[in-house]
């Protein structure tokens, strides 16, 4: 193992910020969900990297649970997208401003 822990954390931070740009800028709910997945995965990498540094399996368990929660989040998000499609609403987060104060 010649690659240091900081490199893994740096890659994780870069991936997280790329995903953040997608969540902030994109307007299609589907692409926002895809960018969210990028963010969640980068955090998983951080958890596993720290778990490897400590030498315990706690961080890996945490990463697995994050995966499970991400699956639940995707199911709900995609269910909303399907419901919006069925009601013939526009799939554009800028247009969906009924709850906007």
């Amino acid at each position: 193992m010649t690659v240091g822990l900081p490199l893994f954390l740096a890659i994780s931070a870069i991936l997280f910020s790329i995903g953040l740009v997608g969540v902030l800028l994109r307007r299609s709910p589907l692409t926002i969900l895809l960018s969210l997945e990028v963010m969640l995965n980068s955090v998983n990498l951080t958890l596993v990297a720290f778990s490897r540094e400590v030498g315990g399996s706690d961080g890996q368990i945490f990463a697995l649970i994050v995966m499970g929660i991400a699956a639940a989040e995707v199911v709900v998000g995609l269910g909303l997208v399907v419901a919006m499609t069925r009601r013939e609403m526009v799939l554009d987060t800028d247009e969906l401003r009924t709850l906007n104060g």
Partner: peptide
């Protein structure tokens, strides 16, 4: 992820069709 979640994503993208490009 690659097995289950992405299949669900692709299924919904195919279901929604070209409408999902409107918000881009």
């Amino acid at each position: 992820y690659a097995g289950a979640i992405m299949v669900m994503f692709l299924f919904v993208i195919a279901y929604v069709g070209p409408r999902s490009e409107i918000g881009a």
